[in-house]
């Protein structure tokens, strides 16, 4: 399937709020859903919704609460905000997709990863998974 190269757009205030929010779960990974609208290749984030991390037994894994995601997709289906992608934190690890991220990745969605070093958010980077190439490609984050 062909993938248009997307661009993530997010208000700078919301971006700051998002990366601050993920640090709260440290040292456990935090995760959530990016909601907004699509405009051609633009993915315009209008809200982020923290989701419970349902991965049990390890701090360095995350599983977006399935019920939260089901609810978001239901809202999308009824004309609500689109599910643009997801975010999660990498406590004390760089904001690049891990092997686990790669193994479990879904294409099309934008995956924002926030590096949290010693409890403080360092930086966020956006990634999109390519089924064909089997890898992640970085996507720009445009602050608006």
């Amino acid at each position: 399937m062909s993938l248009p190269v997307c661009r993530l757009e997010i208000g700078s205030r919301m971006h700051a709020d998002l990366i601050a929010a993920v640090a709260e779960g440290y040292p456990r990974e935090a995760c959530g859903i990016l909601l907004g609208r699509l405009d051609g290749p633009r993915r315009i984030v209008e809200a982020f919704r923290p989701a419970p991390n349902r991965w049990a037994g390890r701090d360095d894994r995350f599983l977006v609460d399935p019920e939260s995601l089901r609810g978001a997709l239901e809202e999308e289906g009824s004309g609500g905000a689109a599910v643009l992608g997801f975010y999660h934190s990498h406590p004390d690890a760089p904001a690049v997709p891990s092997t686990c991220d790669r193994t479990l990745a879904w294409p099309w969605y934008v995956h924002v990863i926030v590096e949290v070093a010693e409890g403080r958010s360092v930086r966020a980077r956006a990634w999109e998974f390519h089924c064909g190439a089997g890898g992640f490609e970085e996507r720009p984050i445009a602050l608006t």
């Binding site: 990974e29 995760c31 991965w55 390890r58 360095d60 894994r61 995350f62 599983l63 977006v64 399935p66 995601l69 089901r70 997709l73 239901e74 289906g77 997801f86 999660h88 934190s89 990498h90 406590p91 004390d92 690890a93 690049v96 997709p97 891990s98 092997t99 686990c100 991220d101 790669r102 479990l104 990745a105 879904w106 969605y109 995956h111 990863i113």
Partner: peptide, 13 residues
């Protein structure tokens, strides 16, 4: 509804 399961982790990788 088909709902993706979104998971991963910041393991060493």
């Amino acid at each position: 509804s088909i709902v993706p399961s979104i998971a991963g982790g910041g393991d060493v990788g």
